[in-house]
Amino acid sequence: MPSSDNSKQSRLTSLPAWARSRAALVGVSTVAVLAVAGTTIGYAHMGKTVTLSLDGQTQQVTASGDTVGDVLDAQGIHVDNHDMVAPALGQQVDDGSEISVRFGRPLKLEVDGKQHTYWVNATTVGGALNQIGRSFTGADLSLSRGGSIDRGGLKLDVVTPKKLTVKVGDKKPVRRQLTAVTVADALKQMGVKVDKDDRTSPGKHHEVTDGDRIVFTDVRVVKKQVHGESIGYDTIHRDDSSLAQGKTRVARSGRAGLRNVTYQLVYRNGDLATRKVVSQQVLRDPVDEVVEVGTKAPAPQPTPAPAANYASGGSAWDRIAACESGGNWAANTGNGYYGGLQFNLSTWRAYGGVSRPDLTSREYQISIAEKVRAASGGYGAWPVCGARA
Rank of each mutant, 00 (worst) to 15 (best):
Asn130Thr: 05
Ala331His: 03
Thr117Tyr: 09
Lys371Pro: 04
Ala381Val: 02
Ala122Met: 01
Leu154Pro: 05
Gly211Pro: 05
Asp83Asn: 02
Val125Trp: 01
Val290Ile: 12
Gly336Ala: 08
Gln75Arg: 01
Gly56Ser: 13
Ala256Ser: 13
Asp83Phe: 05
Asp210Glu: 12
Val290Tyr: 02
Val215Ser: 10
Val293Trp: 02
Lys224Met: 12
Asn309Asp: 14
Gly326Phe: 07
Arg102Gln: 15
Ser10Cys: 11
Val28His: 05
Leu178Val: 03
Asp140Gly: 05
Pro383Ala: 09
Ser312Asn: 15
Ala297Asn: 09
Gly352Met: 09
Gln281Tyr: 02
Glu289Thr: 01
Gly232Thr: 00
Gly169Val: 01
Ile236Arg: 15
Ile149Val: 12
Ile366Leu: 07
Gln225Lys: 13
Arg20Ser: 03
Val168Leu: 09
Thr117Met: 08
Gly380Trp: 08
Ser367Pro: 04
Thr58Glu: 15
Ala308Arg: 13
Asp150Arg: 04
Ala23His: 12
Gly152Cys: 06
Leu34Val: 15
Ala186Val: 06
Lys276Ser: 12
Ser253Tyr: 11
Arg213Pro: 01
Thr217Val: 06
Gly146Leu: 11
Val219Gly: 00
Ser242Arg: 09
Gly152Gln: 13
Met190Ala: 00
Val28Gly: 14
Leu154Thr: 00
Asp239Phe: 02
Val291Ile: 14
Val120Gln: 03
Ile77Pro: 05
Gly270Leu: 07
Pro300Leu: 02
Val166Glu: 00
Gly246Ala: 13
Val222Thr: 13
Leu15Lys: 12
Ser376Phe: 00
Asn269Glu: 12
Arg268Phe: 05
Ser29Phe: 12
Ala23Pro: 14
Phe103Cys: 05
Ser346Met: 06
Val33Asn: 04
Asp94Phe: 15
Met1Cys: 11
Lys48Glu: 14
Gly327Thr: 07
Gly378Met: 04
Gly211His: 01
Asp5Val: 15
Val85Gln: 00
Asn130Cys: 04
Gly378Tyr: 03
Glu363Tyr: 10
Asp140Ser: 09
Gly339Phe: 06
Asp288Leu: 04
Ser201Trp: 14
Lys193His: 12
Val26Asp: 09
Glu370Ile: 00
Phe216Cys: 02
Gly104His: 10
Leu143Ala: 11
Gly203Trp: 01
Arg176Thr: 00
Asp218Gln: 08
Val287Gln: 14
Ala122Arg: 00
Ala307Leu: 09
Trp119Ala: 07
Gly336Leu: 10
Tyr338Ser: 01
Val33Pro: 04
Ser7Val: 13
Gly38Ala: 14
Arg268Glu: 10
Val61Arg: 04
Asp185Tyr: 00
Ser135Lys: 10
Asp150Asn: 14
Gly96Ser: 09
His237Tyr: 15
Gly27Cys: 10
Gly69Ser: 11
Leu109Ile: 03
Val36Cys: 08
Leu12Gln: 10
Ser97Thr: 04
Ser64Glu: 11
Tyr364Lys: 05
Gln301His: 13
Gln342Gly: 00
Glu110Arg: 14
Gly126Val: 01
Arg275His: 09
Gly386Thr: 01
Val293Ser: 06
Asp170Gly: 10
Thr209Asp: 13
Pro106Ser: 09
Asp240Phe: 01
Ser10Phe: 13
Asn335Cys: 08
Val219Ile: 10
Gly352Pro: 01
Asp239Ile: 03
Trp329Arg: 07
Lys8Phe: 14
Asp94Ser: 15
Ala369Gly: 04
Gly42Lys: 09
Val61Asp: 06
